[in-house]
Design a binder for these strands. Structure first.
Length: 1179
RNA sequence: GGGCUUGUAGCUCAGGUGGUUAGAGCGCUACACUGAUAAUGUAGAGGUCCCUGGUUCGAGUCCAGGCAGGCCCA
């Protein structure tokens, strides 16, 4: 037996297991790399997963995508190294450890030492590695698990240090500050995780102020002033006439309005204590604003204020709106008349300058940045939900504020403390600095627990409000209840406060980042231009600092005053610096030593140290260095962002730049990476940023950002909801191939996938089932014939039948198409194309129509050609599908080609490799593509389909032969095309002839359909009338148009001339015939039955029933039989005429009638009940 | 709140540059076909192409504004 045969159904899970074992045993993955030695490389980077949790089904998705393109490139002959990796640092691991130990960050250093804590993290982080490795293998993801990079290893950390030093030397690493949640009472920053603890957000009642910022009159702001001034004559002068003159409304006011108009911008804050730190105002560029004239409620002074139009109602009662001031008395108070002067958008306001609210003149500190500050800037966070639609910006006390200010080059209000160091106006304990004039030294909030019960007690916010009312800079002061975060430890309100951080100055290379990003092929493209591109456009410096324990330490040591510092770039350098420190007696001994060429941990004893060097905390914290001036230097206690770890993998995975320079050069940049779209601002960014800064290059040329895997209802999968899919169980049950195929074929990888196990079942049945059946069919008959395909003994292409040349033409087209899709990183379209080919073209047309060729007789050239054609299709399909379904493709390849291997190896042909994954992907032979042939086969398919439809209408079973079908043809080409596939059509629909009807027959009824596309361009608005006219065309008119090539008609009184292209002419009726149409194609069926046709029908029924009987009796395909039938005249007549046919079909040596049949079955069909006896007649 | 993305049959998805009657598979119903077939064929039922407005002779498609889901960031 040349080709293995299988019981059905095939166990796909077992195929996966078997092939996996075979791969391992024969080192196929290693060979897929080593046999490509010296070939061009395809560089792939593995985005390191974290093994502190069990892998989920979405990991199968992401890794399938990665695997597909690596395997594909291998098939193209490239060498694809895939070094695995593990991401091991970071907050999730710390949190998990804390949860398990039942401790909080507070307890670190108290209940547990940093050393023990980090040891625990180290153990935890790889806890699920075995499960990950298992899944990796079982799903068929080929990646090198034996030599992965691990981010906590000292070599890896050392590489990160070396890179940081490079950035430091380029001046791209600096210490600055960022606004973070801060608890003054606890004296510590809070992580977003701590802020998300339940109970931190509480309702509090605060004093809020709508402040007035006085606009400076200059070119920018002139439009505001102009708006006031221009309207004066109409609106603001006193109207003569009736009524007494209001007491406050005097000529003075008119003149004041005219001469010294004051325009204010209104901004609301719930934290009045930040107002003295205000340096900017933010507006929404597209938000509409208005300028309103009114009076200050506390001073009664006439003012003009700017606020968002949508919020006017909030501050100005409709009943107080006026069109003139006649009859009003003006005084202080809430009910002030008002009037809208004019309208602006935020964009009009940007750039306007205003006066500092608490200036030096009022006893507040001088401010150097005055020139650049106090401007209106755009802010994307501005809304008209509350406040005034204008946001007060204090860059030292708000994250949005800080960011917007930085982008608009607005400085923060900074003063100098007692030591001459810059500080915000609030110190770290939560009090105003002494320089703050009358408020100096006051608590921003009650952080020290002082007594607030006195009747005269005023909070700082209240004091500020009082001062502003007096200054005429408060527009509205009120208590307001809102939610505000509190420190979970001290219960005191959190401050958003500038805290020291180390930054990488990514903004310095922003343009280059953007420029190089444009050279990256993003899949989907929108992620690159949109999500990633916009992120780059709004780039801020990369905050590297993390106040944590388990991570890569920042390798910077500083003197106490920060005047001297050093950035360490290697262990070697660190050890040398420690030696200096020991010499200077800053340290007592050097804890890092080199023994036998390896770095180890040493203590101060005489014992030989053995433990591998550890660069984590707490060890590095205990290292003190000495500055050139002899001062001790202390390590900056921060760790670095874990995203730096993963972004550094192109370098650190090789321990570059400390060694392996050529290795690195060979593998940089990556040709391809893929991760979930959630990595856009994570790994995708850090890779890109580091590559641009360090190498002035992209880090990857092609990148796919895949979407999420949701449950079948579109909900996120989670263990808590119980809707998570177990990847192991899925793979065991359905096999890795169907799982992978489903994920790729069902939706584009970058769309979210609604994961439904029923979908895998369908893929299994429809695609793998059909492919398996096609193989089984081939194996069954090839084995019966003892046929073994050979590479050098094939029926020449020119001698193949239409059907064979057709499927081979389709196959070449498929190769082109699938390669194109893989090349374009579009695996979904590749999978769908393969699937359509296998089910629709190969199985359901070529094999179905070819079956008779396999059944009959000897191994003729036609039969051989049939085998060879099918064999070629199956092998090529196996190759094309191999990247997506690697196990099944291997199975199919080996079954199809193992018998050819010896000769292939001997002659070194493409089939020589033992595994499909070591082969080279076939190139399409375009000279075998015959488009005309593909077209006429489609005609055959459509005509057959129409004929089936007609049979159905006439209730004529396919087994009943019919004389002919008629096909009207309007041109010679169609006639010729259909003529060539006539035999196929006849066989498929069981008719004797296809006859053509041409125009001259005169029986065709034609109809005409307007070609709207063409007519629309030509006639535009008149199209409807023209279309209607065309649909009314008579047979004569159609004929005229066809014969003369034009037709003059009249539409709405206008003469127009129609050309043949303006319409689509087709035949859709044949009077007296049963017809069916499909677009321009029409088929008529001759339903006349002759005696002979009837007899043949009976004969075919008989064959069918006998075949069924054979099958039911469990006979093998090759068994011969003897048949005896009960006597019936009509049957005998049929057997008389078609005896040979019947005998051949059912492989009967004898077919006789007998009056009495005993012990047999009864064949039932049509009106017959035929007793039958069937015996095996084997020798 | 911002950026990106998705919305077409019960379900999963196709529908270059606008063209009038919107498709496929699955599922459902009926009938057929079958010595490879958990396959296949034919027919039927099933649609507010998320909504509103606009551009146009004509919009699932283009524009604007919404709604809903998702991701990331605040």
């Amino acid at each position: 037996m040349n080709y293995p045969e299988y019981k059905q159904p095939l166990n796909y899970g077992q195929v996966g297991t078997d092939i996996l074992a075979w791969w391992k045993q024969n080192g196929i993955f290693e060979k897929s790399v080593s046999t490509r030695e010296g070939q061009p490389t395809f560089v792939f980077y593995e985005g390191p997963p974290s093994a502190n949790g069990a892998p989920g089904i979405h990991h199968v998705m992401a890794r399938t995508v990665k695997d597909i393109f690596c395997r594909y490139q291998t098939l193209l002959g490239k060498q694809v190294n895939r070094k695995g990796g593990w991401d091991t640092h970071g907050l999730p691991i710390e949190l998990q450890v804390e949860k398990e130990l039942g401790i909080t960050k507070e307890d670190i250093g108290k209940k547990i030492s940093i050393e023990d804590y980090n040891q625990r993290c180290r153990e935890t982080v790889m806890r699920f590695k075995a499960q990950w490795d298992d899944l990796t293998e079982k799903m068929g993801y080929w990646v090198d698990l034996d030599d992965p990079y691990i981010t906590f290893e000292p070599e890896y950390i050392e590489s990160c240090w070396a890179l940081l030093k490079k950035l430091y030397d380029k001046g791209l690493l600096y210490k600055g500050y960022t606004i973070q949640p801060y608890s003054p009472a606890a004296g510590t920053g809070l992580s977003s995780h701590e802020l998300n603890q339940p109970g931190t957000y509480r309702d509090v009642k605060d004093t809020t102020i709508v402040a007035q910022f006085k606009v400076k009159r200059d070119e920018k702001s002139e439009k505001l002033f102009a708006a006031v001034k221009n309207s004066l004559p109409q609106k603001w002068h006193r109207l003569d006439g009736d009524g007494p003159i209001p007491a406050n409304f005097s000529e003075d006011i008119v003149s004041e309005l005219d001469e010294s108009t004051e325009v204010f911008i209104l901004a609301w804050t719930t934290t009045p204590w930040t107002l003295p730190a205000n340096t900017g105002l933010a507006v929404g560029k597209n938000i509409p604003y208005v300028l309103i004239s009114t009076f200050n409620p506390y001073t009664g002074k006439p003012i003009h204020v700017v606020l968002a139009e949508a919020l006017v109602d909030k501050y100005f009662a409709k009943k107080n709106e006026v069109t003139s001031w006649k009859g009003y008395a003006f005084s202080t108070g809430k009910e002030q008349p008002w009037y809208i002067q004019s309208h602006f958008t935020g964009a009009d306001l940007v750039g306007i300058r205003y006066e500092r609210l608490f200036g030096q003149d009022k006893g507040f500190p001088a401010f150097e940045g005055e020139e650049r500050a106090f401007r209106v800037i755009p802010g994307d966070f501005v809304t008209t939900e509350d406040g005034t639609g204008i946001v007060h910006i204090s860059p030292t006390f708000g994250a949005d504020d800080f960011r917007a200010a930085q982008q608009a080059d607005i400085p923060a209000l900074i003063v100098m403390d007692a030591e001459g160091k810059p500080t915000p106006i609030v110190d770290r304990t939560g009090r105003y600095v002494p320089q703050m004039g009358e408020f100096g030294g006051r608590w921003v909030k009650n952080y020290d627990g002082h007594d607030q019960s006195g009747a005269d007690y005023k909070t700082l916010d209240e004091s500020i409000a009082i001062r502003m009312k007096g200054d005429g800079t408060a527009f509205k002061v009120e208590k307001y209840e809102h939610t505000y975060p509190h420190c979970w430890r001290t219960d005191k309100p959190v401050l958003y406060y500038p805290l020291d951080s180390w930054f990488i100055k990514t903004t310095a290379v922003k343009d280059r980042l953007i420029e190089l990003n444009k050279t990256i092929n993003w899949q989907p493209a929108s992620t690159g231009t949109g999500r990633f591109g916009n992120w780059l456009e709004n780039l801020v410096d990369w905050n590297l600092s993390r106040s944590r324990y388990w991570g890569t330490p920042l390798p910077i040591w500083r003197t106490q005053d920060g005047s001297e510092e050093i950035c360490i770039g290697s262990i070697e350098q660190l050890v040398a610096e420690i030696d200096k420190a020991v010499a200077a007696e800053v340290m007592t001994y050097n804890p890092y030593q080199k023994v036998d060429g390896a770095w180890v941990m040493a203590d101060n004893s005489s014992e030989q140290p053995t433990a591998k060097i550890d660069l984590h905390r707490p060890y590095v914290d205990d290292i003190f260095l000495v500055s050139p001036s002899g001062q001790p230097m202390y390590r900056e206690t921060d760790l670095i962002d874990v995203w730096f770890d993963s972004g550094a993998m192109p370098y650190a995975q090789w321990h570059y730049p400390l060694e392996n320079g050529t290795q690195f050069q060979k593998n940089f940049p990556a040709d391809f990476i893929a991760e979930g779209v959630d990595q856009t601002r994570g790994w995708f960014f850090t890779l890109h940023a580091l590559a641009v800064m360090l190498e002035d290059s992209v880090a990857y040329k092609n990148v796919m950002a895949n979407g999420l895997v949701l449950d079948k209802n579109g909900n996120k999968m989670s263990k808590r909801l119980g809707n998570a899919i177990d990847p192991f169980q899925t793979i065991t049950q359905f096999g890795p191939d169907a799982t992978r195929w489903y994920m790729i074929a069902n939706a584009q990888p970058w769309d979210n996938l609604k994961f439904d196990l029923n979908g895998i079942t369908e893929v299994q049945r429809r695609f793998f089932g059909t492919l398996f059946n096609t193989y089984s069919f081939y194996a069954l008959y090839a084995n019966l014939d003892g046929f073994q395909a050979r590479e050098f003994d094939r029926v020449p292409h020119a001698e193949l039948t239409e059907l064979d040349r057709w499927i081979l033409s389709k196959l070449q087209s498929l190769i082109l198409e699938v390669r194109g899709h893989y090349d374009a990183y579009d695996p979904t379209k590749a999978a769908r194309a393969i699937q359509d080919f296998v089910t629709d073209q190969l199985s359901n047309w070529h094999v179905r129509l070819s079956r008779r060729r396999f059944w009959k007789g000897e191994l003729t050239q036609d039969k051989k050609a049939a085998y060879e054609t099918l064999q070629e299709c199956l092998v090529v399909v196996a190759q094309l599908m191999a990247p997506i379904a690697p196990f099944f493709a291997e199975w199919l390849y080996q079954n199809m080609t193992d018998g050819m291997r010896a000769e292939a190896i001997e002659r070194n042909t493409p089939l020589a490799p033992e595994s499909i994954h070591l082969t080279l992907l076939v190139e399409a032979e375009t000279n075998r593509i015959d488009k005309a042939l593909e077209e006429r086969m489609e005609l055959a398919q459509r005509i057959s389909s129409l004929t089936h439809s007609l049979r159905k209408k006439s209730v004529l079973k396919v087994r009943q032969p019919l004389q002919r079908i008629l096909v009207p043809v309007l041109n010679d080409t169609t006639r010729e095309q259909v003529g060539k596939v006539e035999d196929l059509i006849c066989a498929e629909v069981n008719v004797k002839h296809v006859e053509f009807l041409d125009d001259t027959s005169g029986v065709l009824v034609k109809s005409v359909k307007p070609n709207f596309k063409r007519l629309g361009q030509q006639y535009g608005p008149k199209l409807k009338a023209v279309g209607a006219r065309i649909q009314q065309m008579t047979a004569e008119e159609i004929s005229t148009l066809e014969k003369t090539g034009q037709l003059a008609v009249e539409v709405e009184g206008q003469p127009i001339t129609l050309a043949p292209d303006d319409v689509e002419i087709r035949t859709d009726d044949l009077p007296g015939w049963l017809v069916a149409t499909d677009g321009p194609l029409t088929v008529a069926l001759d339903v006349t039955l002759t005696d002979e046709l009837r007899q043949e029908g009976v004969a075919r029924e008989l064959v069918n029933r006998l075949q069924n009987l054979r099958k039911d009796s469990g006979l093998e395909v090759q068994d011969k039989i003897r048949v005896t039938l009960g006597q019936q005249p009509e049957l005998e007549a049929a057997v008389q005429s078609f005896g040979d046919y019947i005998r051949t079909e059912v492989q009967a040596l004898a077919l006789n009638f007998a009056p009495e049949i005993s012990g047999g079955s009864v064949l039932e069909f049509d009106d017959y009940n035929v007793p039958v006896q069937l015996e095996v007649a084997n020798s």
